[in-house]
Design a binder for these strands. Structure first.
Length: 480
RNA sequence: GCCCCGAUAGCUCAGCUGGAUAGAGCAGCGGACUUCUAAUCCGCAGGUCGAAGGUUCGAAUCCUUCUCGGGGUGCCA
């Protein structure tokens, strides 16, 4: 996984958690890209290596990555360079050399495409190599998802490959019912209101991602009983989803057995950009590994925890650093409006002060601390849980009003699939508590009625804030 | 060409179905720790809400046009 996968993972998990929190039955369907041309390129590469006598049995994630990059380079070659040269001109010798490479790349690409067709038609050797690639990458992927404190597991993944047996019958169905038509050798579906038709089968017989997405809608509605299908995918695929949703509606794949119609929604999100204004990449132009970002975050968080708590044993510090780091990264990603692009910055991602994930954690930690101190002082906090509220100080009034807004916020956040709203609410709540904490002594309070009221307010804040964080998928800590 | 999206304080961003003096964080300046965790709090300063029209009692929010930026645009995903 690279940095580009952060948003779909974090946002998608949060959107699913929101619906779960609202009491809906949620069927997560991680649409893993495990069945397209890119993976066919790697399969082809490994098959060629085997043919030349190299063993691919001992392949690791790193070597696989290298093969992937090599395959990409070989297939796409200097296509871009050639275009540039043609446009701006260059020495004839350079042009010839470049053309030669592109020619090779063209041949490599053709082989990869044939390999995709072989894979899609169930060729034994292709599938065997593919399976090895799949196992290695999915293991890494799920480990990263777990580290990111998401609920994404193996059983939630329904990758493109799981539709492999459903594509041919689906296309046949669309042809039989005359929903699809042939055009220039390919098979397309016209969608009302969109000029570009939806392409579902290539001239060479290969299927495309729209084909898979149609199969997915059909399965999700008829088999899984979905009545609201939310697609948390990059905004650049907006047209694609318009086409696929339109085609699905035309084919009636959005109709449930009981006749009701499923809602199809694209919860689009913006890109993570580099400071050059292009999609984020490392200096060498490669996509940055997500695990490297997480490691960097933990290193920084660990230093911060150590600085604030010099006496804390390492065994306690490490898990706190891990949680603080994930909270920082996830909050950054969740708190900006989905549709907007943002510029990637370590400093921004890993800021631990102000409107950040750690700030929310800190508020929670301070509340926990009050209850620990209360217990140590022999104050019965449980007795305060039914105490009447006495809201006199502006800070406690304001906090109480914020608490009351929680149900509405949760509902509107879920409805809009917009986790940033719940983030803004969480910040408002944490901020309200911080002011309250500063102005309204809880334990150092001579008035028992006021103390009981404030303890109850603390408890309520703790419950709402941890519920909000849990719903966003942000981990919490007892101390930090 | 056509389609989609964005533009709010020096920087990063909130502002949900139109509602009172447009709010935070960062950066800057000034305060607050012998006190429930200062990863905090309080104050100051900072904005013709990209531009122009329009609808409305009322517009950052809705409509139109334009400017700038980004993205997409049948045989990749």
């Amino acid at each position: 996984m690279h940095v580009g996968h952060l948003r779909s993972t974090v946002l998608g998990d949060a959107i699913a958690r929101l619906s779960e929190r609202m009491g809906h039955t949620v069927k997560r369907q991680s649409h893993v890209g495990d069945w397209g041309l890119p993976i066919a390129m790697v399969v082809q590469k490994l098959v060629e290596l085997e043919d030349s006598g190299e063993s691919t049995e001992t392949i690791t994630l790193d070597t696989l990555n290298a093969h992937y990059k090599a395959a990409q380079a070989e297939c796409k070659g200097e296509l871009v360079a050639l275009k540039t040269i043609k446009k701006y001109g260059s020495h004839p010798k350079a042009l010839v050399e470049c053309e030669l490479r592109v020619e090779n790349a063209g041949e490599n690409m053709e082989r990869a495409k044939s390999r995709l067709v072989a894979l899609q038609s169930g060729d034994g050797r292709s599938v065997k190599v593919w399976q090895r690639i799949y196992d290695i990458t999915m293991t890494e992927c799920l480990a990263t998802c777990a580290r990111l404190h998401t609920k994404i597991t193996d059983e939630h993944s329904a990758g493109e490959s799981t539709y492999r047996e459903e594509l041919a019958p689906l296309v046949q169905d669309l042809v039989d019912r005359k929903i699809a038509r042939e055009d220039d050798g390919a098979l397309v579906i016209d969608v009302e209101g969109i000029k570009a038709p939806c392409l579902i089968r290539k001239r060479d017989g290969g299927f495309l991602y729209a084909t898979t997405d149609l199969a997915a809608i059909k399965r999700r509605v008829s088999k899984l009983g979905g009545d609201r299908l939310v697609y948390c995918v990059d905004a650049r695929q907006g047209l694609h989803f318009k086409q696929v949703f339109g085609a699905a509606q035309k084919a009636g794949y959005d109709k449930k057995p009981d006749g009701s119609v499923a809602q199809l929604e694209h919860a689009a999100f913006g890109m993570v950009m580099g400071d050059n204004g292009k999609p984020f990449a490392t200096r060498s132009g490669e996509s940055a590994k997500l695990s490297d970002l997480l490691d960097e975050a933990v290193t920084r968080a660990d230093a911060a925890v150590a600085e604030k708590n010099p006496d804390m044993p390492v065994s306690e510090r490490k898990p706190i650093a891990e949680a603080v780091a994930m909270a920082a990264i996830k909050y950054t990603d969740l708190s900006t409006e989905r549709i907007k692009d943002y510029v990637f910055s370590f400093d921004r991602m890993l800021a631990f002060e102000g409107d950040t994930g750690p700030y929310l954690l800190y508020a929670l930690v301070r509340i926990q601390s009050i209850f620990r101190k209360a217990e140590a002082a022999g104050i019965d906090a449980n007795a305060a849980m039914s105490a009447p509220f006495i809201l006199e100080d502006p800070a406690e009034k304001s906090l109480a009003l914020t608490l009351l807004k929680y149900p509405r916020t949760l509902a509107s956040t879920t409805e809009a699939s917009e986790p940033s709203r719940l983030c803004a609410y969480s910040y408002e709540l944490a901020s309200g508590f911080s002011s309250f904490f500063d102005k309204c002594p809880v334990l150092r309070n001579d008035d028992p009625a006021s103390q009981a009221s404030r303890l109850r307010l603390c408890d309520l804040t703790r419950r709402v804030l941890s519920d909000a964080l849990e719903t966003l998928g942000i981990p919490t800590v007892e101390r930090m």
